[in-house]
């Protein structure tokens, strides 16, 4: 927990917004002394990212496989979907406009935009790209009444797939996950075993991404492993 010092806001390098992955150790050392980060290495200045689920044993069941998909960039975005300028600016920055249909996901390359509410979305990027996305959204939306907040470190993602994935989830989730009600490209904020989650169905396997607060991740992971046991 204590070592969990990650990307995001941990290392504000004021003028180096565009510094590529090849940022040199000397640069990092010259940065203002924010917190005594561990000795930077040439490969990765700062401390390696850790997840609450590192090393956690999975289900061992190939019809309900669980893998963690940690550290994906997650940016909370708020704005007015009735404002065309807002939709256009987000499309410019993220590659897709925020979906206005409830409980749906827009995909653009490796970025995804998940609907959270009538004026709220989660922009998901590949690991390490959240800073650039936050900057791009901020620039594209400059002057608009919006909110762009990097929440990458708040949640991790449990990816579950297999023929029994749905059967495992419904044991603790009140959402109707039957294919006639919930399918690929849909997402919903709901609860699993009393933990708040955001569920995104990716395909017909079915594969689900389950976003959960890091503080609930071990609890939910273990609950899911237990719930899957009857399918072994």
């Amino acid at each position: 927990m204590v070592e969990k010092k990650k990307t995001g806001k941990a290392a504000p390098k004021p003028k180096k917004a565009k510094a590529g992955p090849a940022a040199k150790p000397e640069t990092a050392a010259a940065a203002p002394p924010v917190a005594p980060a561990a000795k930077p290495t040439a490969a990765a200045p700062g401390v390696a990212a850790a997840s609450p689920l590192d090393g956690r044993p999975g289900t061992g069941i190939d019809t309900a496989v669980m893998v963690e998909h940690p550290h994906a960039g997650k940016i909370n975005l708020r704005g007015d979907p009735a404002d065309q300028a807002f939709l256009d600016a987000v499309r410019d920055a993220a590659g897709a406009a925020p979906p206005t249909d409830a409980n749906t996901v827009a995909t653009a390359g490796r970025n995804e935009i998940l609907w959270l509410g009538p004026d709220e979305w989660l922009v998901v990027t590949p690991e390490g790209e959240q800073g650039a996305m936050e900057t791009a959204l901020g620039a594209a939306l400059a002057g608009q009444h919006v909110s762009v907040v990097d929440t990458t470190d708040a949640r991790t993602t449990i990816r579950m797939h297999g023929a029994h994935a749905r059967d495992v989830l419904v044991k603790g989730c009140p959402l109707d996950l039957h294919p006639r009600a919930f399918g690929p490209g849909q997402c919903a904020q709901t609860i699993i075993a009393k933990a708040d989650v955001l569920i995104h169905q990716r395909d017909d396997a079915p594969t689900y991404d389950i976003y959960v607060l890091c503080s609930f991740a071990r609890y939910l992971w273990d609950w899911l492993v237990d719930a899957a046991r009857e399918f072994s």
């Binding site: 409830a102 409980n103 509410g117 009538p118 009140p174 959402l175 919903a188 904020q189 709901t190 609860i191």
Partner: peptide, 17 residues
Amino acid sequence: MFLIECPWCGPRSQTEF
């Protein structure tokens, strides 16, 4: 299960409200 129609999300379980 008792369903409530969220004006934004659609029908959801009472336990979410």
